[in-house]
Amino acid sequence: MTEPAEVLDCRGQRCPLPVINLARRLPELPVGAVVRVLADDPAAAVDIPAWCRMRGQEFVAAHPHQGPAYDVRRAG
């Protein structure tokens, strides 16, 4: 498992804020970097993978017992 280059703590934020924060931060990181998004809004489990598909980014993994947390790798 790849350790994240950065952790975005979006706990307590409601949809769509976790995705907005991810969208703002990811372009600032190098290609291949992994961001872990901590998001306790149940919608994040659907929204973050969907955003990755729409934006051509790689959804790496969900960690339901760690925040919950979602790992996204910058594809380009």
Rank of each mutant, 00 (worst) to 15 (best):
M1H: 14
E3S: 13
E58L: 09
N21E: 12
A50D: 13
V46H: 15
A61C: 01
P49E: 13
D47I: 01
V31S: 07
T2Q: 13
D41P: 06
R53N: 06
G76M: 05
L29F: 08
F59R: 07
R55Q: 14
G12V: 05
R11V: 07
A50P: 00
R36G: 05
G67E: 02
R25W: 07
C52N: 04
R55F: 11
R73A: 15
R24F: 05
C10K: 02
P30N: 06
V7K: 07
D71M: 03
P18R: 02
A45D: 10
C15A: 11
C10M: 08
P18C: 01
C10W: 03
A39N: 12
L38R: 15
H65P: 00
R36C: 12
C52W: 05
H65T: 13
H65Y: 05
G76W: 00
R55L: 06
R55G: 00
P64V: 04
I48D: 04
A43E: 15
V7S: 09
Q13R: 09
V34H: 13
A44I: 10
R11M: 02
L26R: 03
V19T: 10
A62K: 04
R36K: 15
H63N: 04
H63D: 05
C52H: 05
P49R: 10
A45I: 05
C10Q: 04
E58P: 00
R11S: 01
A62T: 08
V19S: 01
G56E: 09
V46I: 14
G56S: 08
D9M: 08
A50G: 05
G76D: 13
Q57V: 01
P30Y: 09
P68Y: 08
H63V: 01
A39R: 09
G67P: 00
V60R: 11
M1E: 06
L8M: 07
V37L: 14
R11P: 03
P64M: 07
E58I: 11
D41R: 13
D9G: 08
A69Q: 06
E28W: 00
C10R: 05
D47K: 03
A45H: 11
T2D: 14
R14G: 02
M54K: 13
R36H: 10
Y70G: 01
A23I: 06
G76Q: 10
V7A: 06
A5K: 14
V35P: 03
